[in-house]
Amino acid sequence: MSNKVIKDRMGMIITEEDAPEKMEVEATEVKAPAEKDSPVLIYYNWCKKCGICVAFCPTGCLGRKSDGSPYVQAPEKCIHCETCDRLCPDFAITGAKEK
C-alpha cells in the first residue's frame, strides 16, 4: 500500500501524507442495492469523489468504491439524518426519507 502511486484528477501525485483518505479505498466487490430499494440516492454524474459523505456518515452506511466514489454498503444502517445531503458540495447525494 505504501509504494502505491495514486494520481488525482489534475494528474498530481498524491502521497499518503497528503491525503490518507484517498489511500483507504476498498478494492473489494461492490454490492450496492438497486436504486428503488436504496435509502440514499447518489447521482454519479455530479459526484466529484471528494469523500466527505463517506467520512461523515455517522452509521457507516456509505462506503467507497475503488475509484473513490461512494456507494451504499449497508442500506439497513441508514437513519435518514441527511448529513450526507447537507455536507455534499455537489448536490449529488440525497438521504432524505421519501414522503
Binding site: R9, E35, L41, Y43, N45, W46, C47, K48, K49, C50, G51, I52, D85, R86, L87, C88, P89, D90, F91, A92, T94, A96
Partner: peptide, 30 residues
C-alpha cells in the same frame, strides 16, 4: 435523467453546466 427534485435542486439553474466549476471537496457548494 434522474436529477433529484429536492429543495436544493428546485433553486438551481439547470441550464447551467453541472457538475459545477468548483474543485472536488470545495466548501462553496455546501
Amino acid at each position: 435523467a434522474n436529477i433529484p427534485q429536492k429543495v436544493v435542486h428546485q433553486y438551481l439553474r439547470h441550464d447551467k453546466k453541472f457538475p459545477h466549476v468548483w474543485c472536488a471537496g470545495c466548501s462553496n457548494g455546501i
